[in-house]
Design a binder for these strands. Structure first.
Length: 272
DNA sequence: AGGGGAACCCGTACGC
DNA sequence: TGCGTACGGGTTCCCC
């Protein structure tokens, strides 16, 4: 379940490792992960391109080639972008990009709920424009967060995870930031005070930065571009700790699926 | 506007 | 050992 810190880790590593690399062969083995073009179109368009920039938007890794061609990779639960020697034994390989130096960039995904979209510049902008602001953008202030939370009756946790309102935050970091800020996940987003918005902004950006520093959370499936795990799971205070004592006040953490049907963990003792 | 449910996937866990 | 079934989890889409 790669969210912002995990996809950021993948994008940074890949950018450092493959900018300038030329794709000499593109093979689509699992057409059902392809979006935006047909499987044949995906292979044809990526063939003979050179990778110019690898970056992140929301929970997706963007491989930008020359001629304004972009592959937007969204790993969801079990997807991974793996860079290394060609691995013909990978039964879950969906797309293989062979690079001129004989390395392979492979999109592999056991459950195939992840997607590999190929966009031109116009489609890329249309996709990006439909997403909310990036929480780690310097322009994303507490006031901007307050605007994201305004004008809705929904629970604050559901709004944090709404990609149209705020990009890149999923279940793990929504739970963590609300625990850190001492705010109950079920609170109406619009009910947060100015002070609470400032607290939440501080904790949300803080947890995302710390998770990037730890190379992400490998709770179950997440692997980076070299197949390694991230280490932030050891620092989680809420996510995955339902039924265990709160590390701040000692009360047993609650767990429920009442918000958007997803696991929400919180402390009834110190989250208000 | 927003809540509910289905669909998309298949490995894992569990019941019998 | 093996077979059948429930489950998970973000997003999209459809219905209410």
């Amino acid at each position: 379940m790669p969210e912002l810190p995990e996809t950021e880790t993948i994008a940074r590593d890949l950018h450092a490792a493959i900018v300038g690399a030329r794709i000499v062969a593109a093979q689509v083995l699992r057409p059902d992960v392809v979006r935006g073009v047909t499987a044949a179109g995906c292979a044809r368009r990526l063939h003979r391109r050179t990778l110019q920039r690898v970056w992140r938007r929301a929970k997706s890794v963007v491989l930008s080639c020359d001629d304004a061609l972009h592959a937007v990779v969204t790993p969801r639960f079990t997807g991974a972008l793996i860079l290394g020697a060609p691995d013909v034994a990978d039964a879950y390989a969906c797309i293989r990009l062979t690079l001129a130096d004989d390395r392979e960039l492979r999109y592999t995904d056991v459950r195939r709920l992840g997607t590999f979209a190929v966009f031109d510049s116009a489609a890329l902008h249309a996709w990006s424009d439909a997403l909310g602001p990036e929480p780690l953008d310097p322009a994303f202030t507490a006031e901007r967060l307050s605007e994201c939370l305004r004008g809705t009756k929904r629970a604050v946790k559901a709004v944090l995870m709404d990609q149209k309102r705020l990009a890149g935050v999923g279940n793990i970091y929504a739970n963590e930031s609300l625990w850190r800020a001492g705010i109950r996940p079920a609170r109406r987003a619009a009910s947060l005070t100015r002070h609470e918005c400032a607290m939440l902004h501080h904790e949300l950006t803080g947890v995302l930065r710390e998770a990037i520093a730890a190379r992400g959370t490998s709770f179950r499936d997440y692997r980076d571009a070299f197949g390694a795990r991230g280490s932030y799971a050891a620092q989680l205070q809420a996510y995955g700790r339902g039924g265990q004592p709160c590390t701040r006040c000692g009360r047993v953490l609650k767990i429920s699926h009442a918000i958007d049907g997803r696991a929400t963990v919180w402390c009834a003792g110190c989250q208000r």
